[in-house]
């Protein structure tokens, strides 16, 4: 009961934020009705997907401060579970998605246990290592199509809500938007929950957290599982949306890094941060790729600009866009005068 109350409690945000959030949500809701190109629609879908990835990453990377660079492996587990179950046994998305989520979470517990004995850089590099190991395994595993991957067969009758196959992108869009709303509400409850507070205390100072009765190791594993669940669900969706999956596509290091980058750029450890990050980087990436990509003969220029932005943010405000907003607000509020 309290979890539901917490999920709907946005009272600690200023009214300005909430009206902005409302306006953005109204726009998202109406977007398919507005005139748009199919490229814009594809970009919006990417934006929603990366927002969800980022929200998930935010639990472990933001609130708990453990910079996870191996999320792609869980995307892969979700995507492959759905694809394999559809291709081999004709199982609908709504069954395979929870299965994929459970498998991913199970795997996250298994590797999370040793992984969280590590801290800082060592942890981050180890997450990369585990993700690459899994990708290498999938690349030679014939059951899942090895390096060529899997192709989901097209259903005879469209739209098919069970198997998530549609002729028009707006179906996918609204399904993602629903997940997006659920994700925000879940995270809002999460940050108000005991676990949310405990993770922030761990990020602040792990020794102090332990002295307050917090089992830091176990809390991190739990947060890691939450993050994994988010990513695996989007992975399952990705399989249906793309039809065609291969390890290099769904489990690449680039994906892991992108997920972390977006959340960090927007502001890790805040509710809106990952969404802001995705809203900036996804359109930037896709439109710059379009304008400056292979077609124009300037392959790489878009990613150079991209890398430059990331370096700039890291050097100037490592707490991201939301960190800047908070800094300005703290300055306005003024310091504490002891009474």
């Amino acid at each position: 009961m309290e979890a539901i109350k917490n999920a709907l409690d946005f009272s600690d945000f200023p009214r300005l934020d909430l009206s902005l959030a409302g306006a953005v949500f109204a726009f998202l809701l109406l977007f398919p009705a507005l005139p748009h190109s199919s490229f814009a629609m594809a970009t919006m879908i990417q934006f929603l997907m990366f927002s969800l990835y980022g929200m998930g990453w935010n639990t472990i990377g933001g609130y708990a401060g453990q910079v996870d660079l191996g999320k792609a492996q869980y995307n892969g587990i979700g995507a492959y579970t759905t694809a394999v179950m559809m291709v081999r046994w004709d199982v609908p998305f709504w069954v395979s998605m929870p299965v994929g989520m459970a498998l991913a979470v199970g795997w996250s517990f298994l590797i999370g246990y040793p992984l969280f004995r590590l801290k800082g850089h060592y942890f981050s590099i180890a997450t990369i290592a585990t993700s690459l190991v899994l990708k290498d395994l999938f690349e030679v595993w014939d059951f899942v199509g090895a390096a060529t991957g899997l192709q989901i067969p097209i259903r005879s009758k469209l739209p098919d809500f069970l198997y998530l196959q549609f002729r028009h992108d707006y179906y996918y869009y609204y399904i993602l938007l629903a997940l997006f709303v659920v994700g925000i509400l879940y995270l809002n409850a999460f940050r108000h929950s005991r676990l949310g507070f405990q993770l922030r205390a761990i990020k602040d100072n792990e020794d102090v957290a332990k002295s307050l009765g917090i089992d830091a190791h176990w809390c991190k594993i739990k947060a890691y599982a939450v993050a994994t669940a988010f990513v695996a669900v989007v992975g399952s969706f990705h399989a249906c949306y793309n039809f065609n999956i291969e390890p290099e596509d769904v489990m690449s290091l680039d994906l892991s890094v992108l997920i972390a980058m977006m959340a960090l750029l927007g502001g890790a450890g805040s509710l809106w941060g990952p969404i802001i990050g995705a809203a900036i980087l996804v359109p930037l990436k896709s439109y710059m790729g379009d304008w400056l990509g292979a077609a124009s003969g300037l392959e790489g220029l878009n990613l150079i600009i991209y890398g430059g932005i990331i370096m700039l943010i890291a050097a100037v405000q490592p707490r991201g866009v939301w960190g800047m907003v908070e800094a300005v607000r703290a300055r306005r509020r003024g310091g504490y005068a002891a009474s």
């Binding site: 005991r194 507070f197 922030r200 205390a201 990020k203 602040d204 957290a209 307050l212």
Partner: peptide, 16 residues
């Protein structure tokens, strides 16, 4: 204190 938590939130961690 890295400064991510407000004072009340800090104390709440203990109270939790």
């Amino acid at each position: 204190a890295s400064g991510d938590l407000k004072v009340r939130e800090n104390v709440m961690v203990g109270a939790f």
